[in-house]
Computed example of a mutant assay.
Amino acid sequence: MTNALAVTTTPLPNTAVAISGSTLAPTISWTIPTGSTIPTGFVLKESVYLFAQASQGSGALYSSGELAPGTTQVNIGAIPQLNPGTVYTVSIQSDIFNQTTGALEARTRQFTGYVAASATPIAAPTYRPDVSPGTGPSGQAVYQFNSPVSQGIPILLDPLVATGFIYKTGATNPNFASVLLPNIGNPSPYEVFTWNGTAFVFDTNLAANTLLTFGTGGVSEFEVLGISPSLALNPNNSTDFVTQLTFTGSGEFTGTMTPITTDVPEPSTWAMMLLGFAGLGFIAFRRKSKPALLAA
């Protein structure tokens, strides 16, 4: 016998999840969705945990404890156990508590995995996407972003290994204004194609660390090809493929980055290869909790 749930929905997953600082002393930040309306008499509390594997582990290396309501950033700092080349997972836990009884009514947990590279600071906060296994046109994963953007201000995206990518804005997003691709030792320039409404059309060959500015009004979708398979990244490689983008206006970026691969992993493999400095993905798990069940 359990009491009826006073809260009928779980907290919305946080958006704009990013990692900054260094991967051996990370700072995790996020945005609490504006739609996260908490009923009167209840409070939203969040906690952050760090595990030493690419899934929820059997003991956290770090626990923030319950954070003050409205907190959207935690500096995990340097932990002696963190080592380069090791997979770690950050979990952001969102709980709705009854302020009268103290009972936990609902919970959402988000898992953000990454591969530790070094103590060298990350150049800029790097946004993490949600990953939807097997939803791409060839069965590959699709990375879904939900991050704020400002006109002309670059953001960084850090994807998993691939031989190319398709970048696409969301329905109401500002268009892409420019792109800059990293130097990962590719033997030839990247090939950039833009979408004309029915097909991708070749635009230009683009050298690494060279800014490509799209035409007036920007573009809503473009494709990058020509990444050598011999440079394929993996979760244990600290080299990454960080894309710098700017936008024609300010607003929200809710677009996608679809990797083009020559060998598509199984969905269970994608689930393990979570988002990170070398390879990334982001998964949100949601479950509803009953107070009497928790007490038992």
Rank of each mutant, 00 (worst) to 15 (best):
G170K: 05
P121S: 12
R107G: 02
T198Y: 04
P125F: 10
R107S: 12
P159H: 02
G102C: 02
G185N: 07
W195D: 12
T172Q: 09
I184W: 07
T169C: 09
L180T: 15
P154Q: 01
A207R: 10
G102L: 02
V142F: 05
L160K: 11
Q140F: 05
G113F: 04
A119Q: 08
G197N: 08
T108Y: 08
T198F: 04
A119D: 14
T112H: 15
Y127T: 13
A199Q: 15
N186K: 09
T210W: 00
D203Y: 05
N205M: 08
A116E: 09
R128W: 10
R109E: 11
I166Q: 12
Q151D: 09
A199T: 15
I184D: 07
G215W: 07
G170N: 03
A119R: 03
N196A: 05
L180V: 12
S178I: 02
S138L: 13
P189H: 03
N173D: 15
V219G: 08
V131Q: 06
G215R: 15
L212T: 03
S150R: 06
T163P: 00
N183L: 06
T169N: 10
A199D: 10
P159A: 02
Y190K: 02
T210L: 00
T172Y: 08
N205S: 13
P189K: 01
N196G: 04
T135Y: 13
Y127M: 09
Y114L: 05
G164V: 11
P148Y: 10
L104H: 06
P129E: 00
R107W: 05
G139N: 09
G152R: 04
G152F: 11
V149Y: 06
L157H: 02
G134E: 00
N205K: 13
T108S: 14
F214S: 03
T210S: 13
V149C: 09
R107P: 02
G102A: 03
A124S: 15
D130G: 07
Q151F: 06
G134C: 03
V192T: 04
